[in-house]
Simulated scan of single mutants.
Amino acid sequence: MSRLSAEFTDRTIEAHFSHHLLPQTKIQLRTTLLFCAAVYLVFAITDILALGLTPVALALFGCRIAVAVVALASCVTNHLHPHSVGRVYLTASITEIVGMLAFAPIVLARPDELPWHSMSMGLMVLVVYLYIPNRLVYALAIGVISTLVFIVMALLVGELSGKEQLTMVMLLSLANCFGYIAARRYSLIRREEFRVQSVLKNLSERDPLTGCHNRRYLQQELLNMELSRARRFRLSLAVVACDIDYFKSVNDTYGHAAGDRVLVEFAALLRGMIRENVDSLIRFGGEEFLLVLPETDLAGAMHLAERMRAALSAAVTEIAPGKTVGVTASFGVTSVNFASVVARFPQEAVIELADQLLYAAKHDGRNTVKALEFYGRPGLHVAARAAG
């Protein structure tokens, strides 16, 4: 993580983190902005007490109204764009800047109350760092620049003694330092929690040997998600079951370490032939793997399975220096086209058909591909399979 910004140096990971916290961030931002806007308006009472019902007091009230309007507009904007992280940070920064700018005429109109203004400035700086959710670098820039501008104004219009001026500068500097340190620590803690949660989630969803998704992830999340998406948009979805032929003999002949090496190489071969971030590879159990291929019809899935079968037949795995072993695999392929299939069916039915086709390939001599369309009704695909 970056030491200055307290963000992940990998922008992809940082983007995942920001989107993960986006709902919580939006709620926090809305609550904080509305509360700060209300406080800003309530403190108009002090303008009236200090200046009376004068045009200047009314002008200051207009500045306070402007802050409230910007805060409200920021909340509405974020509500209308629920998935935009950048817009959240932009609206937070704009509201902070407008709030700081609106504070300047208050200071100029009431120069005799500079110690109180200094206290208010320190509180506003802490709010920028700690309470309004924003990127730390943006909060740092807004806090430091606003503080410098306020100090210059105080030195120009105020009548503080040298000691009072030094005290004011030191207190505002401490407010920025403590605010930055606390905000940085908070940002690092949240990202460390996210990193740990991601590691634990990955461990629960991945096979430790091959790095593929595991059966639990397939059954609890992946397959239902892909079937729902395909059904919603009336797309095809293919499932390919594949199993290494005579894998037990590899373990018996060369040992389990060699068998593990074969599994890893087989998984790497399959992973290298599917679409990254589109298709999914699952270790279904033992030497059996499953591929979930969105937007893929039966012909496309058959073609991919045949390419995989041929590539594995031509490959060898080095299990020890100077010692290699070659294996083959059998494939069962099915696909469901939701443009024509409207009936509801259990998600396990698709896997079951692919698995049955896999074992049909095993029965017919292994190192082959068997394929059949899934029609959504068990009676139809069973009859078609029997006819084939």
Rank of each mutant, 00 (worst) to 15 (best):
V264A: 09
I244L: 10
Q356G: 11
G326A: 09
L357H: 09
V316N: 08
G332S: 08
V264N: 06
H256Y: 11
Y359T: 11
P346C: 09
R309M: 10
E318Q: 13
I274A: 03
F266C: 04
R309Y: 02
L235K: 06
G259F: 15
A329P: 11
I282H: 00
R275D: 10
L290Q: 01
M302V: 15
L269W: 06
A329N: 04
L281T: 04
G322F: 14
A320P: 14
I244P: 09
M273V: 09
D355A: 04
A301T: 07
A305R: 08
A320G: 15
I282V: 12
D260S: 14
A320H: 10
T334K: 06
L298I: 12
V239Q: 00
A301D: 05
G300K: 02
Y359R: 13
V327H: 07
A257D: 07
R283L: 13
G286W: 05
P346D: 03
P346F: 01
S280I: 13
V262E: 00
T296Y: 00
P294A: 05
G255Y: 01
H303Q: 01
E276F: 04
L290T: 07
S280R: 08
A268D: 14
Y246P: 11
L290R: 14
T296P: 10
E295L: 07
A305H: 00
S236T: 07
F284E: 07
L290M: 15
V278R: 10
G332L: 07
V327T: 07
G285L: 02
E348W: 08
D252W: 09
P346R: 12
A315H: 04
I274L: 15
G259I: 07
D297T: 12
E295Y: 06
M308N: 03
L291A: 14
E288G: 11
I282Y: 00
Q347M: 08
L270M: 09
M308G: 12
A238L: 12
G326Y: 04
A301P: 12
T296L: 13
K323H: 10
S340Y: 00
L270G: 13
I282A: 00
I319D: 05
E288D: 04
R271K: 05
P346W: 06
G255A: 13
V292E: 06
E318R: 02
N337H: 12
A310G: 04
S249L: 02
A257W: 04
R283Q: 08
E265D: 13
I282K: 01
D355E: 05
R234D: 01
G285W: 00
F345A: 06
L304M: 07
A267I: 09
T253M: 07
L312I: 09
L353C: 05
S249Y: 03
T328Q: 03
A238D: 01
A267E: 10
E306F: 05
T328A: 15
S313A: 08
L291H: 08
I282L: 04
R261W: 08
R344H: 14
E276W: 02
G259A: 15
A241C: 15
I244E: 01
G285K: 05
G255E: 04
L263Q: 03
F331K: 04
A301W: 00
L358A: 10
L270V: 12
S249V: 08
L269Q: 06
F345D: 01
V239S: 10
N277W: 03
P321C: 08
L263K: 01
A354G: 12
Y246F: 14
A305S: 13
I244V: 15
D297A: 06
V327A: 14
G332T: 03
R261H: 10
A238T: 10
F345N: 05
L263P: 06
S330T: 15
T296W: 00
A354V: 03
